[in-house]
Design a protein around this nucleic acid. Structure first.
Lengths: 239, 239
DNA sequence: CTTGGCTGCTAACATAGGTGAATTTCCCCG
DNA sequence: CGGGGAAATTCACCTATGTTAGCAGCCAAG
């Protein structure tokens, strides 16, 4: 049932059938989460990692003054806290933004993979490196893009990531975030999120009704976003 | 000569003498860079990684409009692009901020470690995970802290990181960045960097003369910064 | 069918931070 | 010691984004 992870990893390199088997067999059990429920809470000591099989989730931190910043959005096939197997204690929380289904993998099983399957280990390592590359791209977006460009950039990114796990339909995909959550993601206020959304709409770049986003003009959107997909590393090669 | 890397890794876990030997022997050669020279240029295909032995370096990206964002600062002991061994092509450049001395490690040698030294592999993986945790903390700082808090936060972080590799002297350390470079790091303008620096000075939180920063009141500084060092993972435990 | 609570949307006003242009200070180098 | 260029600093003005508040639409629960 971890097909989405396999699907994702196969965008980066070839997996042997033995490796796919190992990935299948590492799962201990399944868990379900309601929307707004914590999948992992900040600071807790962990012995298992969570692989998202259904739904949207987010990594976040809360500051002393109560403000929240979302530092990553996760979709099907993402290992939301693979890094906890070495960090042991997470510096952030992970929250389910929609109802989520999660495959649980014990840290012992991950360690066993690192002891006996070097290539698979490198692919898991790679997936954390792509998380990191995504963090960098978000840093650039936060620091040097306008709110409009930042949001456009996020749309581009989500579109490609969802496409990689076959969750797009033409130029449409599900974006089940409230504008408040989006504000916490982009680092802006809810009011300003709304202004930016209105602008993308009147410019006929996107449509956003209910929780479905449709990209109306991809070329113009990537231009507004100054989007370059290199950081997603969606090219298959030996790793 | 890779003592600073050993020093850094030993903050996270115990290293066997065999492991230290392997780390020593993985180095192919040394390289020197002048200030402002690229250590790695964005987008190039790589076959070696670079370990910083002396100097300050930064990861950066440049946007179409010419603006630059620095996404990481690196000090002695940091592997500035260990991740290139799996990403192959970097999504960012790395620039020497001061004259730098670098130990070069071929990707082949790193791969060999992943094939034969699982524990060392996990420690190298861990070091990239801490990069990632740092990116997350910077995201929070960019998105939800004031410019003042953000700069204060950076000072706290650099102090602890430099302390870990024995490059602090009491509450003083070297910060060889221009205010323009600092602006690219914090995602603000040079003029505003100056305003923020003035404010930290008049509040008697820090001193910054030449390239030496001195923290005058650590407790008040971490409060202004809302600083929590968890994300640096400076605790030794089995990984 | 009604109600309450979230979410989206707007408006009016406030401010952190940006921009462009001097001016001053600091050093490096001859 | 003197000159030149980079870096720091300051100023005046501008704008993107934040804040507070209110209202409307929707939907789930009763």
């Amino acid at each position: 049932m971890i097909n989405p992870l396999v699907l994702k990893l196969e965008h980066h390199d070839v997996l042997s059938s033995e490796e796919k088997r190992v990935l299948e067999s590492m799962i201990s059990r399944m868990r379900e989460f309601r929307a707004d429920e914590d999948i992992v809470s900040q600071g807790s000591r962990l012995t298992e990692s969570n692989l998202l099989l259904e739904g949207f989730a987010a990594r976040y931190k809360i500051l002393m003054n109560g403000r929240r910043q979302i530092t990553a959005l996760h979709v099907i096939g993402d290992f939301v806290d693979l890094h906890s197997h070495l960090l042991k204690k997470l510096d952030h929380g992970v929250i389910a933004l929609t109802p989520c289904q999660v495959a649980v993998v014990s840290h012992d099983n991950i360690r066993r993979i690192t002891e006996s399957h070097p290539h698979l280990t490198r692919l898991l390592w790679l997936s954390t490196l792509i998380d990191s590359a995504t963090h960098r791209e978000w840093l650039v977006a936060m620091g040097r893009r306008s709110a409009l460009g930042h949001f456009a950039h996020l749309i581009c990114e989500l579109f490609l990531r969802l496409q990689a796990v076959q969750r797009t339909d033409g130029y449409s995909f599900q974006l089940p975030l409230t504008q408040a959550e989006l504000g916490d993601t982009l680092g802006i206020s809810t009011v300003h999120v709304n202004r930016v959304v209105q602008e993308l709409r009147t410019d006929r770049l996107i449509t956003w009704q209910g929780d479905v986003v449709t990209i109306l003009d991809w070329n113009r959107l990537i231009q507004v976003a100054d989007f370059d997909p290199t950081y997603l590393y969606l090219e298959r090669e030996p790793r």
